[in-house]
């Protein structure tokens, strides 16, 4: 039985009058949870994953109200959208095979995107680690991740909802591949 993963995402809420960042914790449901709410009677959607998404979305849209619209903004990418993006980046990312597999090999990159998926700005979140002694492999990994993003752009982003994904974070984790 796979463990359910719950990602905690920090969001910012800023107003001119309140310069202090108000951090709220929002729980994003995992893929397993998304599957739980899927309607098994929707046979067509079972056959075609893309239809699952469209079926689900349509169902929600039918019932949508103005109040719920605000909550929809937290939903992140749909499974299909996320899969398309991942598949694209998998193809572009040449993992440096010489890296030690027993180290912390997670590189987090924050992106600012244009509506067509091209990159406005990239920011390595643990940038200080790039030049730390004994962390040469981290720099190599971060550079490979940046190359992957540049090679892939424009990224396969959803055609709608730009406000939702104009800022995005990609977590490049090579451990699984290097241990393999």
């Amino acid at each position: 039985m796979p463990e359910k993963t719950v990602k905690k995402i920090e969001t910012k809420k800023e107003t001119k009058q309140n310069p202090e960042k108000v951090v709220t914790e929002v729980k994003q449901v995992s893929e397993f949870e998304k599957k739980d709410i899927f309607d098994p009677s929707d046979i067509a959607a079972l056959i075609d994953k893309s239809k699952v998404e469209s079926a689900k979305t349509n169902k929600k849209l039918d019932k949508i109200t103005q109040d719920q619209d605000k909550e929809m903004d937290f939903a992140g990418l749909t499974l299909s959208e996320e899969d398309a993006l991942k598949a694209q980046i998998f193809g572009c990312w040449s993992i440096p095979l010489g890296l030690p597999f027993n180290e912390d090999l997670l590189v987090r990159i924050k992106l600012q995107l244009k509506p067509d998926g091209s990159i406005i700005k990239t920011e390595i979140l643990d940038h200080a680690r790039m030049n730390r002694p004994g962390q040469a492999f981290y720099k190599v990994l971060a550079e490979s991740a940046l190359r992957a993003i540049k090679l892939c752009q424009p990224l396969r982003v959803p055609s709608t909802g730009y406000e939702r994904w104009k800022d995005m974070q990609l977590n490049f984790d090579a451990r699984e591949m290097l241990e393999g």
Partner: peptide
């Protein structure tokens, strides 16, 4: 009404092992 957008995170756990 202020729209608050959670930062979307996508985990990239696979890449290609083709020679660079």
């Amino acid at each position: 009404p202020i729209k608050v957008f959670a930062l979307i995170e996508v985990d990239i756990t696979r890449g290609n092992l083709n020679p660079l």
